[in-house]
Amino acid sequence: MLVKWIRCTVVDRRGFERGQRKWAGLLGEPGFRGQGGGWSRRRPGVAHVFSFWESRSFYDSFMARSHDRLAASQSGTFKDARAKLFEYRFDVKTGFEPRFTDADLVRVALCRVHEERAEHFTLMQEKVWNPAMAGSPGMLRGLFGEGPGHEFLILSMWHSAAEHGKYRTERVERLALRAQTEADIAALTGDIVDLESTWTV
């Protein structure tokens, strides 16, 4: 599965949201698995969209054929758009599906990892972080994806902000020590996204 993460700064909120609903046109696309997104909790006006495709070839075919037509309605409503692609590697918890209807919140982390530490980082994700997140009440599902240049995406869906907050304060520092996270990671960025139900396809 291919995961696409788009982040942009919205300059015309009403126009952007109107255009976002037009992406319902993705439903007929071969290989399309689902899309959702919402607003950053930390940065006013920043929107995140996550879309999922069965494979890179289905995605490339969509980009060549239908993408520009669907995107036209949002033209001029945002700036500083950044899109990144990741190959799905494994679930966080079990049975990941690109479904957004039961989640209120998405936590996204982008880790750029030192080349010689990429294998260790992946292993720690499986052995240390995954069990801890899977055991957290309110964490619904998630995935670990790999992009070019030793970049990794960790995406988790949560029932509510309160439950995600409990996980963060209780566990993160202790887990980071155990996983030697500081030695693995060259750069870490991320965000907390309040999902908008009307953006779900």
Score class of each variant (00 low, 15 high):
125 Q>V: 01
194 D>A: 14
145 G>M: 04
168 R>I: 06
157 M>Y: 08
166 K>R: 14
152 F>H: 06
119 E>Q: 12
186 A>C: 05
172 V>K: 03
187 A>T: 03
178 R>D: 11
167 Y>V: 03
153 L>T: 04
128 V>W: 01
145 G>I: 04
160 S>T: 10
146 E>G: 09
146 E>C: 10
120 H>T: 09
181 T>A: 15
178 R>H: 07
137 P>Q: 10
147 G>T: 03
159 H>Q: 15
125 Q>Y: 03
139 M>Y: 03
121 F>E: 05
187 A>L: 11
183 A>D: 15
194 D>M: 06
128 V>F: 01
175 L>K: 00
169 T>R: 12
152 F>W: 10
135 G>D: 13
176 A>V: 01
181 T>H: 13
189 T>H: 12
180 Q>C: 05
125 Q>M: 12
153 L>Y: 02
174 R>E: 15
189 T>K: 12
185 I>F: 05
117 R>D: 08
141 R>M: 12
157 M>R: 10
185 I>N: 11
149 G>A: 14
196 E>I: 00
165 G>D: 08
184 D>T: 03
170 E>K: 13
122 T>S: 13
150 H>D: 10
170 E>N: 09
155 L>P: 02
180 Q>T: 07
191 D>V: 04
155 L>A: 09
140 L>C: 01
150 H>I: 00
191 D>F: 05
155 L>Q: 06
142 G>A: 02
184 D>G: 02
121 F>K: 08
127 K>F: 01
172 V>R: 11
163 E>V: 00
145 G>S: 10
136 S>D: 04
142 G>I: 02
122 T>F: 04
145 G>V: 04
179 A>P: 07
155 L>F: 13
154 I>R: 14
161 A>K: 07
121 F>N: 07
189 T>F: 03
153 L>A: 13
183 A>C: 03
171 R>W: 07
130 N>A: 11
193 V>A: 07
136 S>G: 09
176 A>M: 08
140 L>T: 03
167 Y>W: 15
190 G>S: 07
136 S>I: 03
176 A>L: 03
153 L>I: 10
187 A>S: 13
178 R>T: 13
146 E>T: 07
129 W>D: 06
175 L>Q: 06
